[in-house]
């Protein structure tokens, strides 16, 4: 029995067919099936206007922002294996990543730079959407979701900033939370709740950690789902 025969046999089994619902990309039918039977690809329509493939149409900014979100999730989860939100272990763990853990420094670098890039890309994405007028009806609400996602990106990046517990982190957060404190009425209370106390200490570190690793990413994921869903429902990237 040669390899091709074996392959044919495997592909024909009920198990295989229960996982992969179509065969090769040999026909438009199978290509369409690829998209809409795949949970990851089905946010796309089966067909798109040829014009929208052009790069300058979107600059890929939204897609890249999402790609960065994915990259941040993957690197972030890996970094969590070696991170303890405690003082001074948090800082020590940064050193462990740098000196001991295989590829630890690379992962931390990727995470850090991707975070900066995401803030930038989301902002640029917003500008692009504005100038191409893609916020106009019927997409008003998706614009609002986008603005919320921009704020979430900022908060994600900001909460991650404290986690290494170095001087840069500590004082950046000090300045940032004092800016928030200036808000009338709710400012001081907000700061108190955010820091879990009056000073930036272990409580604040744990709170920022939970926000950074659980609360904000989940919120972002939900809003992203809504964002993409609306893109599908309200139409693609064609200008009106």
């Amino acid at each position: 029995m040669n390899v091709l025969e074996l392959k044919e046999r495997v592909v024909a089994t009920p198990v295989w067919r229960s996982i992969f619902r179509h065969r090769y990309l040999d026909s438009n039918r199978n290509r369409a099936l690829t998209v809409f039977s795949n949970v990851f690809l089905h946010i796309h329509p089966v067909k798109v206007p040829e014009k929208s493939l052009r790069l300058r149409h979107t600059m890929c900014l939204g897609g890249l922002s999402f790609a960065l979100f994915l990259a941040l999730t993957v690197t972030g989860v890996l970094l969590m294996f070696y991170y303890r939100p405690a003082i001074p272990q948090a800082y020590r763990d940064m050193k462990e990543l740098e000196f001991v853990v295989t590829s630890g420094a690379l992962l931390r670098n990727l995470h850090r730079w991707a975070a900066h890039a995401m803030v930038l890309f989301v902002f640029l994405h917003m500008a692009r959407v504005f100038y191409s007028g893609a916020y106009r009806p019927p997409r008003e609400f998706n614009w609002v979701v986008g603005v919320l996602l921009l704020i979430l990106s900022l908060l994600l990046s900001y909460t991650g900033y404290l986690l290494p517990w170095d001087q840069l982190a500590f004082w950046a957060i000090t300045v940032g939370t004092n800016m928030a404190e200036a808000a009338p009425l709710i400012g001081p209370k907000f700061k108190f709740l955010l820091l879990g106390g009056n000073v930036i200490g272990e409580n604040a570190l744990v709170r920022f950690y939970v926000l950074h690793c659980v609360v904000l990413p989940l919120a972002a994921a939900v809003l992203l789902a809504v964002h993409f869903w609306r893109v599908r429902k309200d139409g693609g990237v064609r200008p009106l």
């Binding site: 890996l78 294996f81 462990e96 001991v100 853990v101 295989t102 590829s103 630890g104 992962l107």
Partner: peptide
């Protein structure tokens, strides 16, 4: 895999 393998 190597990453999650502790070195010390």
């Amino acid at each position: 895999l190597d990453f999650v393998h502790p070195k010390v």
